[in-house]
Simulated scan of single mutants.
Amino acid sequence: MPRRAISNTLALAVLGLLQERPMHPYEMAATLRERHKDSSFKVNSGSLYDTVESLARHAWIEPVETAREGNRPERTVYATTALGRTEFVGWIDELIRTPVAEYPKFMAAVSYLGALGPDRAADALTDRATNLTRRIAETNAVLEQTVGSGAVPRLFMIEVECARHAWEAELTWTRRTIAEIHDGTLAWPAAGA
């Protein structure tokens, strides 16, 4: 599989937004935040503008208008190009079709859970379960406000659903592991062993 000229997932978000309509970068950032996409993509102004410049440099997007409203700075509106649409669809297909090795920090930490000892491991996992429970509840509220109210089509928030399901699975594993620590079925080696 050839290496993609741009692989920053924020570029994927920009291309996705521009499938809907041409936008300027400020509107892109606001739309991503409004749709809670900032939980899927790291969105900050500097990286967004760098990403837009890179997409334009590779001819995946192009400026279609520059306008000024009142005293505000000029804003350049971008649209996707035919090449950008082709790259976007190919990239989405590849990411969905082909699992890749991702290296989540939590998995790295879990691989050394034993270093905490049973009590501290159970405490840390209990805190994680609390945080996951809160995150799931917040996500359910966002989904109700957006998709449930009909304000945003479900398809536009489907990755939030996917993330919620992953957190629910992690929460189930976390609670089961806590129970195994407490009941002794997850055994720790003897000290010095």
Rank of each mutant, 00 (worst) to 15 (best):
I92S: 11
E20L: 03
E27W: 03
A193S: 15
T31M: 07
S7D: 14
G70M: 12
A122K: 13
G84Y: 06
A129F: 02
P99R: 12
E170F: 04
V52D: 03
F41L: 01
I96R: 09
I136M: 02
E53P: 00
A11F: 01
G90E: 13
A82P: 04
S111I: 03
E138T: 01
R120C: 14
T51K: 06
A129M: 05
E53H: 06
R176A: 13
S45P: 03
E20K: 04
E62I: 02
P63I: 14
A11W: 00
A166Y: 09
P189N: 07
P2L: 12
V100N: 07
T9H: 01
V100I: 11
N140Q: 08
Y103G: 08
S45I: 05
I181D: 01
N140T: 11
E102V: 12
L143S: 10
M157N: 00
E159V: 05
A129L: 06
A79E: 11
H182I: 09
D183R: 09
R120L: 14
I61K: 05
L116A: 09
L17M: 04
R75L: 08
A11R: 00
T174C: 05
K37Y: 11
T81W: 11
V160W: 01
Y49S: 04
T139R: 03
L116G: 05
E27H: 02
G70Y: 08
Y112A: 07
A5V: 12
A59K: 12
T130G: 05
G84N: 09
I158T: 13
S149C: 15
E138D: 10
E74L: 10
A30L: 05
E20S: 04
G84D: 06
A187N: 11
S47F: 13
E168F: 01
A13W: 01
F156L: 07
M23I: 06
M23P: 00
T185N: 07
G84C: 07
N44M: 10
D123W: 04
P104I: 05
